[in-house]
Design a protein around this nucleic acid. Structure first.
Lengths: 225, 225
DNA sequence: TCCCGCATAGGTGATTTCCCCATGAAAATT
DNA sequence: AATTTTCATGGGGAAATCACCTATGCGGGA
């Protein structure tokens, strides 16, 4: 490598910044070229130094770290951003990556996780702390857990075929699409739909979606992402 | 620890099984108590030994490794299953965890990843190979990458009247109901609707509801009540 | 055997959707 | 002031969908 990897730190706790610098200082490959205690400060730093890496606390006094990510990437698109957070909450994690972060590390993690994360990110990979991947996996596995709740309602009064149709409709498929997917005539699909509506006491497609959402047949939480 | 961690291996390649055993043998804490080259064999082993860990190839000659996971957990629920796969495809990963796996490792990974994974899983944690978390993050980030574009060409580009119409539509009102509510012709309401769709890049009513949910125009959380 | 539930599909008229176009008023631009 | 653009309002017509009803073949129980 012909030059050191430049790093900026954005975190409102001076002591924590010192800690990060100490850890980074252990490796001769990295160099902290600036630090800031606020989002505004971080943005200026990013614009000025165009660093290779930015370590950003997700909870900043003047703005959300998520916004900062987006702003930073506008002025310095090549900077790889690593989020450092106290939260291992799945929503934060998802939003961080969606905002353009390349890595997500929990504050309580061991020091070597940080260097590990930086290395991965420098290689163009994403990086998730172990504690973070826990959450992500739970989220993924959770989709299935939700599907199990589907008993004890009118839903299991539906025939297997009707349940198939219902899932597709809840996902927003049109009658024609359902028919194609199940290799049946549109008319048949329509009839299944009508029977579903009657059995469940529904009167519009949106009500059907609501019903499906309530049973966990579809995941409306992912809509909010 | 008062006894060694017991491990069984299910993989149809004898050579690969040898490789795994060699790696595991490096640590005195682990003991391979059985191995099988098929799903059926693996199931018998699991029932007989009730091992702490099962390393399972996802691609088995006689059945899907995913089915095997479920069967195994029935006869030996306390066994922690680690999937070993050549695929880093997101669909396999998700299904593996949904089926009850605790870890997912790619075959090409370095040897220490295997031991790392086994340790994590023994602690009750989930484990994902780095290459795997790449896919998962891309999946998470990817969802919005598509929708993000829509957000940019946003809701505030709508005229006031269009926003009114949008709210009513998002609440599930029909064109006729919207027209009545706003004292306009159904045709006008229809036109507003079409303009909204075009401006926001939507193609169905459900997409419109999703969009509205994302912006908080409607409260989909109350659906779950 | 007879009946009923299930999956399949058609008919018909009303409604909705989709994709054009048109007009007047207001707002912005020149 | 003159012109263009945008907004809200509507319509026409073809295509799709909906609502409601009927019908057929098939399999499992009473």
């Amino acid at each position: 490598m012909d030059h050191k990897t430049s790093i900026i730190i954005v975190d409102d706790h001076p002591l924590f910044r010192e800690g990060l610098k100490a850890i980074i200082g252990r490796s001769a490959r990295y160099e902290v070229v600036g630090e800031a205690g606020s989002g505004r400060g971080g943005l200026l730093l990013a614009g000025k130094h165009k660093p290779d890496i930015a370590l950003v606390d997700i909870a900043l006094p003047d703005q959300s770290g998520l916004e900062l990510i987006r702003e930073m990437l506008k002025s310095s698109p090549r900077t790889r951003i690593l989020i450092i957070s106290v939260h291992s909450n799945i929503d934060y994690i998802v939003k961080a990556f969606q905002s353009g972060a390349f890595g997500y590390i929990i504050k309580v993690s061991a020091a070597d996780k940080l260097l590990e994360g930086i290395e991965h990110v420098m290689q163009g990979d994403y990086y998730m702390d172990t504690a973070v991947s826990q959450q992500v996996v739970k989220k993924l596995a959770g989709l299935m857990a939700a599907e199990k709740i589907v008993t004890g309602s009118g839903y299991d009064a539906l025939t297997p075929r009707e349940q198939e149709v219902m899932v597709l409709l809840a996902e927003g498929r049109s009658i024609q699409q359902v028919a194609d997917k199940l290799f049946i005539s549109p008319k048949t699909a329509e009839n299944h739909r009508a029977n579903i509506m009657r059995k469940l006491g529904l009167h519009s497609t949106l009500e059907l979606v609501r019903y499906a959402a309530k049973l966990g047949i579809i995941d409306i939480d992912s809509w909010k992402a």
